[in-house]
Simulated scan of single mutants.
Amino acid sequence: MRLEPGAKAPTWKLPTAEGTKLGLADLKGKKVILYAYPAAMTPGCTTQACDFRDSLASLTAAGYAVVGISPDKPEKLAKFVERDAITFPLVSDEDKSVLTAYGAYGEKKNYGKTVMGVIRSTFVIDETGKIEHAFYNVKATGHVAKLRRDLGLD
């Protein structure tokens, strides 16, 4: 199941790299960029996280909060935050229930084989909790620049 613009974003409250919990309700009144990635500290996911980190000031200035979500344990996320100076929240969805609700977990092609896994995706959620954009099967490299163009920030 994939989310469409106008749909209500599935709610969530998940553990963060810092050991606290963060939920969509905590960000009410803000525009949220929630991006799903397969695994912390892998080359593509590191590139994508660093692109978001490097664009964070301009995204924040435009009213967006950025949150990364993966099935990694909070301890691994904490290492990722420290190693790569990630300056926005990363949340852990170990049972993949939130990723599944967003359509960001399921069958995908990996090197020609069909496997179950995280589908690299980005969701833009408006201040009222509705999906503005749902991008599936995005590329790790260049995605943030494309997202900025799609949002009219460049």
Rank of each mutant, 00 (worst) to 15 (best):
M1P: 04
M1K: 13
R2I: 06
E4F: 02
E4M: 08
G6T: 14
A9G: 06
P10K: 05
T11I: 14
T11R: 13
W12C: 05
L14F: 04
L14I: 13
P15T: 14
P15A: 10
T16E: 11
T16F: 03
A17W: 10
G19K: 13
G19E: 06
T20Y: 12
K21A: 07
K21W: 03
K21I: 07
L22A: 02
L22W: 12
G23M: 13
G23N: 04
G23P: 05
L24K: 09
L24H: 08
L27K: 04
G29W: 07
V32M: 10
I33P: 03
L34V: 14
Y35A: 07
P43K: 11
G44R: 05
C45Y: 00
T46R: 07
T47H: 12
T47C: 11
A49W: 06
C50Q: 05
C50L: 06
C50S: 03
D51N: 10
D51I: 03
D51R: 01
F52E: 02
F52G: 02
D54F: 08
D54V: 11
L56M: 08
A57M: 11
T60H: 07
T60A: 12
T60Q: 12
A61D: 10
A62G: 00
G63S: 12
Y64F: 15
A65F: 03
A65D: 09
V66G: 06
V67I: 05
V67E: 02
S70P: 03
S70G: 00
S70Q: 04
P71D: 09
D72F: 09
K73I: 13
P74K: 02
L77Q: 08
L77Y: 08
A78F: 14
A78D: 01
K79N: 11
V81N: 12
V81M: 07
R83M: 03
D84G: 02
D84K: 15
D84I: 01
A85H: 08
I86H: 07
I86Q: 02
T87K: 14
F88Q: 08
P89I: 01
L90D: 00
L90C: 02
S92V: 09
E94F: 03
K96A: 10
K96Q: 15
V98H: 04
T100F: 07
A101C: 07
A101V: 12
Y102W: 10
Y105I: 07
G106S: 07
K108Q: 09
Y111I: 11
V115T: 11
M116I: 11
G117K: 07
V118K: 03
I119A: 05
I119V: 09
S121D: 04
T122E: 04
T122Q: 03
F123K: 00
I125G: 02
I125N: 02
D126N: 14
E127Y: 00
T128Q: 12
K130I: 02
I131K: 10
A134N: 13
N137T: 15
V138F: 01
K139G: 08
A140S: 13
A140I: 10
T141L: 08
H143L: 10
V144A: 09
A145W: 05
A145T: 09
R149T: 15
R149G: 04
R149Y: 05
L151K: 03
L153E: 03
L153N: 13
L153G: 01
L153Y: 01
D154T: 15
